[in-house]
Nucleic acid binder design. Structure first.
Ligand SMILES: [Mn+2]
Ligand SMILES: [Mn+2]
Ligand SMILES: [Mn+2]
Ligand SMILES: [Mn+2]
Lengths: 231, 231
DNA sequence: ATCTATTTTTAGATTTGTCTAAATTTAATT
DNA sequence: AATTAAATTTAGACAAATCTAAAAATAGAT
């Protein structure tokens, strides 16, 4: 490889692994100058702390994270921007899979993990356009704009809504396959209107009314559903 | 990694590099039991012959190629099937980029080189369906079916057509960016009807009539355009 | 302030894919 | 059949990303 290419590779081209680390650090809160520990990253990525240390040094060398030995890492501005661009791609591809290829919301994540690493600015811009600039992915997570802005939502966990309040289900906190399948089976979907009828002190379970029908759901379910409260 | 996963990885999961080697060997004719030399593969892939030797051993170990030291490699049945599935993905993605995302035919190859390695059978089946089961990619190359069948075409190079014969332009042999841009600039596109008016002995150039207009094209151009002869 | 459990880093090894340089084999030419 | 040129393989090295085991640093508890 030529000298110029070595330079480009070292400072600009991101490997798949580097991108995955940045994304994980962001999701663990490392975008807000907060230091994320080696162990936390290792656990999240199902790898070993020693591997995380190695990558922390490399990303620090590239100016993508601030790394202090024994203290952890946080993302630099460039690191945040890069993480957001990967998250943007991940979520846009998830929308594509659901809207254009009839994937269910529990099938998209694994494939999006691969697609998010495709390098082509035009591809992602045109995909955004094809999907008519969606604001949220199939799990209700916000899609960052091209220039890395996040549209924060005024949303609450269903478990924190007071009795008799009402709102629209807008997202899931846990987007694991089992949870999503459970929601499907119980006909709980984004967009549904939910009213909290009653809370049970004993186990924190809720009695709710959803699109006319009454049902009881456990605290664990309610604590993983985001609701936009009606004003 | 567990023992089972090590086994799966060794015998079933293809790396990007392995897939690229199989594809190259296929394109060099290694699907017809013909032995492809180490040097030919190295040149095509812009790598070194010693690297090709290493990979030949690995692919042979996996049962994807037949490799005889100093003689070269050819694809096994499994190797052909695998190569065709990658080529199928490459070409379907190219159609997607042109038909759904407004890419031009000279922009798609590079991105398809990345997309062809995405692993999801459902993704490619659904993509095929979204595109309404296209038979050819934007350069006129046939798209193998899901079960690895190729629809061969009755096509000729324009340079081999006799004077006064006529046909429809259905593909390009060279699909490099400069050639494709040249064709665009001269309004030569797939689907155009071309009639050979005259051939110049001196430089083998052709006088043709295309959609009413007359023009002269060099032998090099004519030798890279596939035409389906009208019966 | 010292001890101790936990976290984190280092050192050294491994796998994949690549390279260079040297050795070997094949194929062409006398 | 011997010589030579070209093709191919081997040996050894390297970078990336990972691991294990041992060493070092930190933080919590006395
Ligand atoms: Mn996801
Ligand atoms: Mn990923
Ligand atoms: Mn192509
Ligand atoms: Mn490729």
């Amino acid at each position: 490889m030529s000298n110029k290419n070595v330079f480009l590779k070292k400072y600009f081209l991101m490997t798949r692994s580097e991108e995955n680390y940045l994304k994980t650090i962001f999701h663990l809160g490392g975008g807000d100058a907060k230091s994320i520990t080696t162990n936390a990253i290792a656990e999240q990525m199902e790898t070993k702390p020693s591997s995380v240390t190695d990558m922390a040094k490399k990303l620090s060398e590239k100016g993508l994270v601030d790394y202090v030995r024994y203290q952890g890492v946080s993302l630099t501005d460039v690191g945040v921007k890069t993480a957001l661009s990967i998250i943007r791609k991940h979520r846009l591809w998830e929308v594509f899979l659901v809207k254009k290829l009839d994937f269910t919301w529990d099938e998209v994540h694994e494939v999006a993990e691969q697609l998010e690493h495709i390098k082509s600015e035009k591809l992602i811009d045109k995909l955004d356009e094809l999907l008519e600039f969606p604001k949220h992915d199939p799990h209700g997570d916000p899609i960052p704009t091209k220039d890395g802005k996040f549209q924060e939502r005024d949303e609450k966990l269903l478990s924190e809504m007071p009795i008799n309040s009402q709102g629209v289900c807008v997202g899931v906190k846990d987007s694991s396959v089992p949870f999503l399948k459970f929601l499907d089976k119980n006909k709980i979907a984004l967009g549904n209107t939910i009213k909290v009828l009653d809370k049970e002190d004993f186990d924190n379970s809720l009695r709710i009314q959803m699109d006319g029908k009454e049902m009881r759901i456990s605290h664990q379910i309610a604590a993983n559903l985001y609701v936009k409260k009606n004003d």
